[in-house]
Structures are given as C-alpha cells and as structure tokens.
Amino acid sequence: MSLHHTASQEATRRTALRLLAGLGLYGITMPSIGQAFASDAPGWPEAAFKAKTQDEVLAALYKGKLEMSKDVTIETPEIAENGAVVPVSVSTKLPGVTSISILVPENPYALAASYKLADASMAMVGCRLKMAKTTKVIAVVEAGGKLYAASSDVKVTLGGCGG
C-alpha cells in the first residue's frame, strides 16, 4: 500500500515537472498576438464550445431532449492520476448515428469534443481529454435525429487545466 502510494506520488511529481518544462517552452515560442484573432475554422461550432454548462452546450448543438440509454457505452478510467490526459471512448450499437459529443461539465467549458460521423463511419470514437477536477463525463450520441446519452465518473487527482 505504502509502496504504491510512493510510486504514484513520484509519477505525479514527474508529470508536474514535465508540464512545467513544456509550459516554459510554449511561453517562449508563442506566436504574435495578432494571429490569435484569426477567424475560426469552417464548421466549428463556436457557441457550443464557448458554453459553460451542459444545457447550454446541448441547446447550441442539438434540438430535442437527452435520453439516458443503455445502448451507449462510455469508457473512462475510474481514477485519473493526471487530469491532462484522460482516455475516453464512446461506442454504440444504435443505427443511424450522425454525431458523438463528449462533455466534461466540471471543465471551464463543458464541451470537450464533438465528432461528426459520415454514412461510412462506425459508431465509435476514442480520444484523450483534459479534466480540471473530479467530474462526470457525458457521451451524447445523435442517432436518427434523437439524442441518447451515457455518463461515467472520473476521479481526478491532479487537475489538467493549469489552475
């Protein structure tokens, strides 16, 4: 028990050091401020990504109500030692899936990622997200014009948003 604890503390310390080293690097190489005002990429749902709450995100992205569904599978670790890199995967057997969005309501902006699927796409996605603190993670699947959701709880021991 104590052995494991020491190892995890060491890992946390190393992660923190790496994070600091990385920050220094980006501090120096930041491009000029002017570029920060370039227009957003076409199709990027700005309002949804600027929304602070789950309800605002859903209103900006979708029409209709969310229904929790056993047919949506979300996988996350139970405990994330490093909130900067938390693997999340979402899949479903529901037919006619057109989009999959992943929300992290405890983050400053609730929407983390939204994926648009083509007819050829399989209904699954895996990615890595930052989580500021212990949070619920919500997967929203749009299928046949309806919204289905599943959620998972992640205990974050070192937040991934700087703070």
């Binding site: 996605v125 990615c127 997200l129």
Partner: peptide, 28 residues
C-alpha cells in the same frame, strides 16, 4: 477523407489533450 469524401470530422475545444490522439473506424 477517403477518395475526397469526409469519413470522420472532429470538432475540438481546448479540453482535448496536448498532442491529440483520436481513434475511429469506417467502412468502404
């Protein structure tokens, strides 16, 4: 894109981890 047709589109905010990773699958 595959054959100039989009098969999967990611919209990302600042909560996606540094050096992002994504996994998906498609048919055809």
């Amino acid at each position: 894109s595959h054959n100039d047709k989009p098969v999967f589109t990611a919209y990302w905010g600042p909560a996606v981890s540094k050096d992002p990773y994504v996994k998906f699958a498609f048919k055809g």
